[in-house]
Amino acid sequence: MIDTSRPPAATLPDGHDAQDLEVVPVRNYGRWIAATAALLALVGLVGSLAKNHNLHWDVVGHYLFADLIFDGLATTLWLTAAAMALGLGLGTLVAVMRLSSSPVLYGLATAFVWVFRGTPLLVQIIFWGYAAALYKYVKVGIPFTDVTFFQAETNALLTPAIAALLALGLNEAAYASEIVRAGIQSVDTGQAEAAHSLGMRPALTMRRIVLPQAMRVIIPPMGNETINMLKMTALVSVISAHDLMSNIQDVYAQNYQVIPMLVVASLWYLALVTLLSIPQAWLERRYGRGTTHAGHTSALQRMLGGATGLIARKNKEAGR
């Protein structure tokens, strides 16, 4: 009787069973040489910086966890969070307006993006910081009449922190609107048509059907915008908003240790960006479920997996 539970084993011309052959992976010697050279260069650079006395590592260690630095970090973090919240909320509204069939809404949204995306962020920060030079008072009332409901001095209302928040938030809204608009347009129009056929209102369709599906496209660039926003808060030092970079500048203006203080700022920015990358990767995996990139592994995971496989093969060869 012939066993049909498994396919017959292939037989080589010399009579050996093909299943007994050992699979030997391709040796990528060039890749290993390049990786070794890159690691040696990195070690050399790190060693050179570590032994460079001009960096004054004692100054770096003294100010790395100083109270002044933590005060600046607190301002940087809340500016980043508040500016991203303002930018994402307003950007979503502007994106919906740009997709509207109303020419007035489309024109207003397009003009907003044109102005805030077309001028440098540094210019916008300085403009909001010195807005009192344009308007001494902020008034709310009926146009072309003397009726005023609210009035306050611009300098008292637009503090450096508020001016920085407006500049960062409005600038981010222009970029976020394009990201959200691209995400909405990536969703098949049949989804909205099916929702409308079930009696769902356009606003409910956008909130419950379209936007959740668009998040797969929105999350990756929006995560990059959040990281970029964290770094762009350093620009508000030009109006003394007491962020991390502002406090760093105040210190090296007194002790003249410019490079060590910039090292302190760089270390903290790198640490914060690393922490922000963790939830970004989690959100990308969550909203990317069911796509071809859902099983994507990072370079570190591939490196560790390759090293583990190499060790396993070595142990297997040594046991023979």
Results as ranks from 00 to 15, higher is better:
Met1Thr: 10
Ile2Glu: 02
Asp3Ala: 07
Ser5Ile: 03
Ala10Cys: 01
Leu12Glu: 02
Leu12Gln: 00
Gly15Tyr: 02
His16Arg: 12
Asp17Leu: 15
Gln19Phe: 06
Val26His: 11
Asn28Lys: 08
Tyr29Thr: 15
Tyr29Leu: 14
Ala37Ser: 09
Ala38Glu: 02
Leu39Asp: 00
Ser48Pro: 00
Lys51Ala: 10
Asn54Ser: 10
Gly61Val: 05
His62Asp: 09
Tyr63Glu: 03
Tyr63Met: 02
Leu64Asp: 00
Ile69Met: 13
Phe70Glu: 03
Leu77Phe: 07
Leu77Asn: 03
Ala82Asp: 00
Ala85Gly: 06
Leu90Tyr: 01
Leu90Glu: 02
Val94Gln: 06
Met97Cys: 15
Arg98Lys: 15
Val104Asn: 01
Phe112Met: 12
Phe112Leu: 13
Val113Gly: 10
Phe116Cys: 07
Arg117Met: 12
Arg117Asp: 15
Leu122Val: 14
Trp128Tyr: 06
Ala132Arg: 00
Lys136Arg: 13
Tyr137Arg: 03
Gly141Ser: 11
Pro143Val: 14
Phe144Ile: 08
Phe144Lys: 14
Thr145Asp: 12
Asp146Glu: 12
Thr148Leu: 11
Phe149Ala: 13
Gln151Tyr: 01
Leu157Ser: 07
Ala163Met: 06
Leu166Thr: 00
Ala167Gln: 09
Gly169Trp: 09
Ala174Thr: 04
Ala176Lys: 12
Gln185Pro: 10
Ser186Arg: 08
Asp188Gly: 14
Gln191Tyr: 13
Ala192Trp: 12
Glu193Phe: 15
His196Ala: 13
Ser197Asp: 11
Met200Tyr: 10
Ala203Asn: 09
Ala203Val: 14
Ala203Cys: 05
Thr205Gln: 05
Arg208Cys: 09
Ala214Pro: 05
Arg216Tyr: 08
Ile218Asp: 09
Ile218Val: 12
Met222Trp: 03
Asn224Tyr: 00
Asn224Ser: 04
Thr226Tyr: 01
Ile227Val: 06
Met229Phe: 06
Lys231Leu: 15
Ser237Ile: 03
Ser237Gln: 10
Ile239Arg: 01
His242Cys: 01
Ser246Lys: 02
Ser246Ala: 05
Asn247Leu: 04
Ile248Val: 09
Asp250Gly: 08
Ala253Phe: 04
Gln254Ile: 13
Pro260Phe: 02
Val264Pro: 01
Leu267Asn: 04
Leu267Cys: 12
Trp268Ser: 04
Val273Pro: 02
Val273Arg: 02
Thr274Phe: 11
Pro279Gly: 08
Ala281Asn: 12
Ala281Gln: 11
Trp282Lys: 14
Thr291Gln: 09
His293Pro: 05
His293Cys: 11
His296Thr: 15
Ser298Phe: 15
Ser298Gln: 13
Leu300Asn: 07
Leu300Lys: 07
Leu310Arg: 11
Arg313Ile: 04
Arg313Glu: 04
Asn315Pro: 01
Lys316Asp: 05
Lys316Met: 09
Ala318Asp: 11
Ala318Tyr: 04
Arg320Asp: 10
